[in-house]
Design a protein around this nucleic acid. Structure first.
Lengths: 225, 225
DNA sequence: TTTAAAATATGATATTTGTCATGGAATTTT
DNA sequence: AAAATTCCATGACAAATATCATATTTTAAA
């Protein structure tokens, strides 16, 4: 396993604000973890005693609703940090994390990073900024859920994945999700998600190959309502 | 206007972690502001250069959706801080704040409080904790919006207001909102909000007197689905 | 490869929610 | 107090979405 101070992943998250010395200390105590597609990283209600740094792969952060359905709150890819909240609260985590494909992660124990949080203001501010960003995104999703149609939300998540996580060399979305996952992101029944994607396909907005999805007409997707 | 260091409001937010000296400095530069019911405190897209500390009254934080409807994201009462995000980001605010009744607030310029944020780790951690809490709440609302029926959401907001903001001496909810506000919190059409409240009334779950609402049967409200 | 299981697809139908229209009640303004 | 305005209420209907049922296809397992 590599050293944190040389890992380029850190550039994408708050860890970049740690000093070289701090990073070396973190590096010494971190543990690498591999997760297979579908594997649970942690579950709602668990006590996390550290943060996870995503080196490769994608996972979903979700929360179980009282009706028994899972709602995806956020997708996290390479460079993302999981469990930031655990650094500031003693509370158990309110979200579950599940790998959507094979993943490679580093786990950094809370004990090791807490001192940095109190001593390195630059790092703290960075964590604060990331949290503020998450909050803004969450508020936006909240408004979308409350005010937009399922079809619109589906169009938006396709564009979101396209814009933020990119495509492979054949223009297929690089993140491959099941229809059930799409339903659980958009907040609808699986059948409805399937129906809408079928409709998009018929209308030539997207094309599919197995689970893979390619956006064929971004411009029109944008104006779906 | 009183002095921050003697103001009991601060006990309810991150300002409690400032030292006496810091509080005196803040006190010297803060400005008191009064807002009347319905008055706009700030609007989405504005640049906030400070935080607002709510001394009295209630306001709603909302965001305009693309469909032209306002979605309430959070209610803030005595002790709450508005504009925390502005302390960590240069970005314009993503929310609007509107007074729901007459309000009394203190405005603390960003410039004055920023130095504390970088020098007083206890304060920073407190802001971080509040932000983490907001994020958790926002995620929960997101899941509720996505997975629960309008009726359920209405029942929950009534209970939320009851539990968090209390009642007057006749058991009426101490926060009085228009049906339109309820609709915009729950994320539904005003007519739907009206209809549901009427139904609750018919079923004896609540009673009303003008705009005032009294919860008559908390137990049953809890089991609405 | 065959079988079993899971995921996708689609129809039929029920339920929920939104929209438009209209009237009455409450509040504010003149 | 009258008029005007805003808010609340409710019916009728339309649209969106969920649910149930049942194929079909794809994927995983034996």
């Amino acid at each position: 396993m590599g050293k944190c101070e040389q890992c380029i992943i850190k550039e994408f998250n708050a860890l970049k604000s740690l000093t070289k010395e701090e990073l070396m200390r973190v590096s010494a105590c971190k543990t690498g973890r591999l997760y297979k597609k579908g594997q649970i990283i942690f579950e709602e209600g668990e006590t996390l005693n550290g943060v996870y740094c995503v080196r490769d792969g994608v996972c979903k952060l979700s929360k179980l609703s009282e009706n028994g359905k899972d709602q995806v709150v956020k997708l996290v890819v390479k460079g993302g940090l999981l469990g930031k909240r655990s650094l500031v609260t003693e509370q158990k985590t309110n979200l579950s994390a599940v790998a959507l494909n094979d993943m490679e992660m580093c786990f950094i124990p809370k004990s090791e990073i807490m001192s940095d949080l109190s001593k390195n203001p630059k790092f703290t501010m960075d964590v604060l900024r990331e949290m503020a960003h998450d909050l803004k995104e969450s508020d936006e999703s909240l408004v979308n859920m409350a005010q937009k149609s399922v079809k619109r939300r589906m169009a938006e998540i396709l564009m979101y994945i396209h814009d933020n996580f990119g495509t492979d060399n054949e223009d297929y979305l690089s993140i491959v999700l099941s229809r059930e996952d799409y339903a659980s992101i958009v907040g609808t029944a699986t059948e409805s998600a399937i129906r809408i994607l079928s409709q998009f396909k018929k209308e030539g907005l997207i094309s599919t190959r197995g689970k893979q999805i390619k956006i064929e007409d971004y411009g029109s997707l944008k104006w779906i309502e």
